[in-house]
Simulated assay, not measured.
Amino acid sequence: MMRQDELETLVLAHYDTIYAYCWRHVGQRELAQDLTQTAFLRFWQNRDRYRHDGRELNYLYTIAGNLCKDWCKRKKPVALEDLPESQRDPAAPPPDRDTALTVRAALAALPFAQRNALLLYYVQGFTAPEIAAITHATVPVVRYRLARGKRRLQELLKEELP
């Protein structure tokens, strides 16, 4: 069983990466914070079921991914241009804002499984076997999602960008 000080250490070590992951899925700062906090809360509530084999980050990504997936199923579409500045990426502004918005819109148009695989691979830096463990899929399925998602993203961007 995990002690509270171990949870605090876990939160301090992984909050930023789980938050960034949630933000890239939902695109809203406050919502990403809520989802991140909920992911850690669920981790804590289910700590008795967690096997302490050093994969707590995978477990956190699984919880956060499920929360983001549930939110994406319920959300109503919002144009990225309509989001207030406070809900946009907390990182430094991209050099070409229109291109960044176009890429975010294209990512949002992908099915969740493909978008999730692309974000975990290209943004979070996970390998295909690690993504398979996080998403409870096989490595070939993850590789298929990555290839199909990348191909579809290129198609969408080719339509939007000059």
Rank of each mutant, 00 (worst) to 15 (best):
P84S: 13
D34G: 10
E56C: 10
S86R: 15
Y121E: 05
Y15T: 02
E81H: 11
R55S: 05
K69G: 02
A100S: 08
L7G: 06
E6D: 15
A39L: 07
H52P: 11
T36Y: 08
V78S: 07
F40V: 01
T99E: 07
V103T: 05
V11S: 01
L41D: 13
D89M: 05
F112N: 06
L101R: 13
T9G: 03
K73V: 11
E6S: 14
P95W: 01
L60T: 04
R74W: 01
R104V: 00
R29A: 12
P90K: 00
N66T: 13
A108S: 09
L10E: 08
D89Q: 02
P84E: 14
N58W: 11
D5F: 09
Q87G: 09
C72V: 12
D48F: 03
E56W: 05
R24I: 01
Q33G: 03
T9H: 10
Y50K: 00
I63W: 02
L120I: 02
R24F: 09
L107T: 04
A79Y: 09
A92L: 12
A39H: 03
R51D: 09
P84F: 10
A109R: 13
L31K: 14
L60R: 01
A39P: 05
E56R: 11
L110A: 06
Y21Q: 03
W23R: 13
R115P: 04
T36Q: 06
R29M: 10
Q28N: 11
Y122W: 06
P84G: 14
D82K: 14
L118R: 12
E30F: 02
H52M: 08
D98M: 06
F112T: 10
A64N: 02
R115N: 04
T9A: 13
N66P: 03
V11G: 02
R24W: 03
R51S: 08
P77S: 09
L119S: 10
R29L: 12
A106N: 07
